Simulated assay, not measured.
Amino acid sequence: MKTQSLNNLPLNKQAGFTLVELIIVIVILGILAVTAAPRFLNLQGDANASTLEGLQGSIRSGMNIVNGKSIIASNHKKATATVVLGTDANGDSVGVPTVYGYPAASEEAFKAFLDVSFATNDSADFNLDDTAADGTLIIYPNSYEKTDECRIDYKQATATTGPVVVTPPTITLVTTGC
């Protein structure tokens, strides 16, 4: 029996992947794409929902600051008033229109106590609609419509007649459509 040396190997060596191996790799990549892709496709919606959550916290904090200043100024039982928060860069007073000591549901009030741009163009952070008759302000990301389920609803404070009992504003976060 003859043995071959290492230098004398036959020339039928395999130099690449077989078709079966390539198909298996493609199938595995397809399965990964189907299971992992949906998690990454909805990042915009998750980002908008997180932004709205942060804005909701800012609204609550600003609302409490305005209410505290309103109590100090003894305006907290008045149906409408203006609370001065301080001065701007030009030295002008920054006033927040209030309803029973809390910010009114208006663009003017929100621009005065929040550092967020509201407009109806693409450069704005958020859009808002303050046309509701019941004193509700709708704030939504600029890539959505006000009827989408991706918004903050701010319903301004109300009060009962007689001895004034103030019901604070309600802030409802809706993120099911983000």
Rank of each mutant, 00 (worst) to 15 (best):
P103T: 00
S117P: 08
G135Q: 02
F126W: 11
Y154E: 00
A133G: 15
C150M: 01
I28C: 11
L41F: 07
T161D: 14
S70N: 05
K77E: 12
P168I: 01
I26F: 12
T87D: 10
A112N: 06
L52Y: 01
I72A: 10
S70M: 05
L128T: 02
N48I: 07
N142R: 15
A81L: 08
G45E: 08
D134M: 13
V66G: 02
V34D: 03
I65Y: 15
A36I: 07
S58N: 15
A73V: 07
A37E: 03
L128W: 08
N75D: 14
D46V: 04
D125K: 15
I65R: 15
I24P: 13
S58H: 10
D122E: 12
Q156R: 11
A47L: 08
A109G: 06
K77H: 14
D122W: 10
A112L: 06
A33C: 10
I59T: 09
I152K: 00
T120C: 14
F40K: 07
A47N: 08
A157M: 01
I24G: 14
V83I: 15
A37I: 06
Q156A: 08
D153E: 10
I59A: 02
S50M: 08
L55H: 01
A157T: 02
I139Y: 03
T131I: 06
S58C: 05
G30R: 06
A104H: 04
A73F: 05
A104Y: 01
K146L: 12
G45S: 14
V116N: 05
S123F: 13
T147Y: 08
D129L: 14
Q44E: 11
P163G: 12
S106E: 06
Y100D: 00
G86F: 01
V165G: 05
L85M: 09
